[in-house]
């Protein structure tokens, strides 16, 4: 009796559509670009992979997609091993590479048709038409790719990646060199794809983008995955709030009575900055204000600010450097 089949939730891979285990990569030059990376991508999520230049983002994606051979570790895509069962694994994956590599002399239509065939799908002009229309490329379908602008080429690459109806889409810096309007279009497209059940893994240097789109965030630095967290949790956990007070009269130093508090004084002595954790219930703002008035320090204005994902990211990567 197929007991296991009747309990689909029993399979450990039911939640993770991409499962990366102990993946390392040492290039021929001897440079180790990845150090035993473990990562599970959940079915249907948008996962943002962040990291400075050369951190190993593209290398990781390239291994999953089959472009680079990993030195150790293994990867499952929907339960299919990328090495032993590469046909099943790769049929599920679409990749938009970081580089704008296109067949300059081909037409948009021909190149998209080619991609669908290459990934083993029967022709479906109606589907391809929809993809091109969604990406505002339909009017350009007969144009040679070399006559398109950079942003349009990027969209052609996306259309190619979507041509075979992948279940997992890798976007390696999809919005590099793309203007604001197109970037927002792309975000919309990504959300639409997610609604259709496609799992999306993207890398980006625009923190704003991860903040806007991602469900979960992974930070990679020097080949190591240093954080994987829900975006909201990450921002709550690592995010800090600051209260800035514009003083009536400048101080020369922080009064000794307040030395126990996390306070900073600006160079001109006009502004006092109090940093507190967003996680704690007790912010300490009320006691601070009370003690300030006891000391006769008056302020004319105050505002509070929350750290962005960018601040978090920078501090994370710095602390590792």
């Amino acid at each position: 009796m197929p007991v296991i089949e009747s309990r689909p939730d029993a399979a450990p891979s039911a939640e993770a559509i991409v499962s990366i285990r102990g993946v390392s990569k040492t290039y021929k030059s001897g440079f180790q670009a990845l150090k035993r990376v473990d990562l599970d991508i959940r079915r249907g999520e948008i996962f943002a992979l962040l990291g400075p230049n050369g951190a190993g983002k593209t290398t990781l994606i390239s291994i999953v997609c089959g472009i680079v051979t990993g030195s150790e570790g293994n990867v499952l895509v929907d339960g299919h091993d990328i090495a032993h069962d590469f046909r099943s694994a790769r049929s599920l994956i679409g990749l938009v590479p970081q580089e704008l590599s296109t067949d300059a002399f081909e037409s948009v239509w021909a190149t998209v048709k080619f991609s669908r065939g290459l990934f083993g799908r029967a022709p479906d002009p109606a589907y391809l038409e929809r993809v091109l229309r969604d990406l505002s490329l339909w009017e350009k379908r007969d144009a040679k790719i070399m006559t398109l602008s950079g942003g349009m080429k990027r969209r052609v690459l996306i259309a190619k990646a979507l041509a075979h109806e992948p279940r997992v889409l890798f976007l390696d810096e999809p919005t590099a060199g793309v203007d604001v309007e197109l970037r927002h279009d792309m975000w919309q497209m990504v959300h639409k794809l997610r609604e259709a059940g496609v799992t999306i893994i993207l890398t980006t240097h625009y923190i704003e983008e991860a903040e806007e789109m991602a469900d979960r965030i992974g930070v990679i630095s020097r080949g190591e995955l240093i954080v994987v967290e829900e975006k909201t949790t990450l921002m709550r956990k690592l995010g800090k709030k600051q209260l800035s007070l514009q003083l009536q009269s400048p101080l020369s130093a922080i009064p000794a009575d307040l030395a126990d508090l996390p306070l900073e004084l600006s160079a001109d002595g006009q502004q006092l900055v109090y940093t507190f954790d967003t996680q704690t219930e007790e912010t300490g703002i009320a006691p601070l204000l009370r003690r300030l008035s006891e000391l006769g320090i008056d302020f004319k204005d105050l505002h509070s600010s929350e750290s962005s994902l960018e601040d978090i990211f920078v501090s994370l990567v710095r602390s590792r450097a």
Binding site: R87, R90, S91, E99, L118, F119
Partner: peptide, 17 residues
Amino acid sequence: MPKWAGTIYELLSAPVS
């Protein structure tokens, strides 16, 4: 040509032997 133009990525990532 695909090697030179970089489009070889698609061939390498495709479910083909």
